[in-house]
């Protein structure tokens, strides 16, 4: 059953009990592509996902560094707040956040899809662990080398944490590229819809469900993830497994 996972998905472009299609119909892709504003969805997905990654990079690294390396008033309280956030799923807060965005007039915009995920509690937690493992001596050596705190962070700590940071970004990419729930709740028009929501609309095509087109549409959603997965399989699995056994 598990092995059916990926490869079978491409087989499903054909009609049901036929395992191997007689002719490989690439035109299904064009059909799927034409059956909705998929380019728009695709671009939206890219904008949203990449914006989230960039913003996260700028919020996570300094926060994780501060939590790992400085003692300051209320540091524990702020870290506890981060950990609480880690435990709050989006399924719990979508309603109040929706109301908030609606009062700000931000509903159905990219910002509504990006802003709540501009920081990531889990990533801060993981990166903090990584930063804490860097031996104190290294920082002292840098201090003696007259490096500023800022320079220590981005010249020494960040390069050392690069594998963790890349893994966390991959993680984020997969999560937000795939996300269906949040864009479903926050968007109302094709102008800001992302791929998962756009594709799910294919189930409601009038005149019965066109399975082959639907599956072709899904390929657009799945292929980028699979490419990333096979390029960085070990990274990704390690990261996911780590979340389970931390």
């Amino acid at each position: 059953m598990a092995v059916t996972s990926v490869k079978s998905l491409s087989e499903t472009i054909t009609f049901p009990p036929v395992w191997i299609p007689e002719t490989i119909r690439f035109e299904n892709f064009t059909l799927a592509w034409d059956s909705g504003p998929f380019l728009r969805y695709f671009v939206n997905s890219l904008i949203v996902t990449l914006s989230i990654l960039v913003l996260q990079l700028f919020t996570i690294v300094p926060a994780a560094y501060a939590f790992a390396r400085y003692r300051f008033f209320a540091d524990r309280a702020l870290f506890a707040l981060t950990m609480i956030t880690l435990m709050i799923p989006t399924q719990l807060i979508f309603l109040p956040v929706y109301l908030q965005f609606s009062s700000w007039g931000l509903l159905d915009t990219h910002l509504a899809l990006i802003l709540p995920f501009a920081a990531n509690a889990f990533a801060i937690f993981m990166l903090r662990q990584t930063f804490k493992q860097v031996p104190e001596e290294l920082l002292e050596a840098a201090r003696l080398d007259q490096a500023s705190e800022w320079k220590i962070m981005y010249m020494i700590m960040v390069p050392m944490a690069k594998p963790t940071i890349i893994t966390l970004l991959l993680f984020s990419f997969i999560t937000h590229w795939n996300d269906y729930f949040w864009p479903l709740v926050m968007t109302t028009t094709d102008a800001s819809r992302t791929l998962p929501v756009g594709i799910s609309a294919l189930t409601n095509v009038e005149g019965g469900v066109a399975w082959h087109i639907m599956m072709a549409g899904n390929m657009i959603l799945v292929v980028p993830i699979l490419i990333i997965f096979f390029v960085a399989q070990r990274h990704i699995i390690r990261a996911f497994v780590y979340t389970g056994v931390k």
Binding site: L138, E140, Q146
Partner: peptide
């Protein structure tokens, strides 16, 4: 950084 002192650490502390 301003004391003009250099230090060699037990674990080298190389970047």
């Amino acid at each position: 950084g301003k004391r003009n002192v250099s230090m060699v650490f037990q674990n080298y502390a190389l970047y």
